[in-house]
Computed example of a mutant assay.
Amino acid sequence: MRRLALLLITACLSVSALAADVIKSERQETFGDVTVHYNTFNSTYLQPDIAKAAELIRSKNQGVINVSVIKDGKPLIGNVTGTVKDLTSQSVALNFRQVSEQGAVYYIAQYPVDQQEIRTFEIKVQTGDKINTINFNQELFPGE
């Protein structure tokens, strides 16, 4: 599983994506002393064995979003929920699953990518009694 975490993090950091809005050099938001890192990519970027170990569907029509929550340089357990909307405002719920490994906690979810289009993501991260929201747009492409 450690290999899985390393590969997912590497994939998230190395995947270049075209965004509808300006992509920050690092996909992260800071809320007080909590930093939320996030990224999304097509599931075909994952090696088959890594996708299988993470229980992810590897398909040209499936995207993956990866979220991690950090406080004081350490992983923080939280509750992550969200939606992804297309240009017609049809919304798909993101069903995040927590993955815990030695020294890492992250949340992954999959969503359909049927065609090239700009999608709007809304991610809610609850830590304790605080709920923080991240909104971003990203142009997505079906894989090959």
Rank of each mutant, 00 (worst) to 15 (best):
R2G: 15
R3W: 14
L4G: 09
L6M: 13
L6Q: 15
L6F: 13
L7T: 14
L8H: 14
I9W: 13
A11H: 12
C12G: 15
L13M: 11
A19E: 12
V22G: 05
I23V: 09
K24E: 11
T30P: 05
D33C: 01
D33L: 01
V36D: 00
Y38K: 04
F41I: 04
T44S: 04
L46I: 00
Q47F: 06
D49I: 05
I57Y: 00
R58W: 04
S59D: 15
K60W: 01
V64C: 04
V64D: 09
S68R: 08
I70S: 02
K71V: 05
G73A: 03
P75E: 00
P75T: 04
L76I: 07
I77G: 05
I77W: 03
T81N: 11
T81I: 06
T81V: 06
T83P: 06
T83E: 09
V84K: 06
K85D: 07
D86P: 01
S89C: 03
A93S: 13
A93V: 06
Q98A: 10
S100V: 10
Q102E: 08
G103C: 06
V105W: 04
Y106A: 08
Y107M: 03
A109I: 02
V113F: 10
Q115M: 12
Q116K: 14
R119H: 10
R119K: 13
T120E: 12
E122W: 05
E122N: 12
I123W: 05
V125D: 01
Q126F: 02
Q126R: 11
Q126T: 15
T127S: 10
I131F: 02
I131K: 07
T133V: 14
F136T: 09
L140P: 02
F141P: 01
E144P: 15
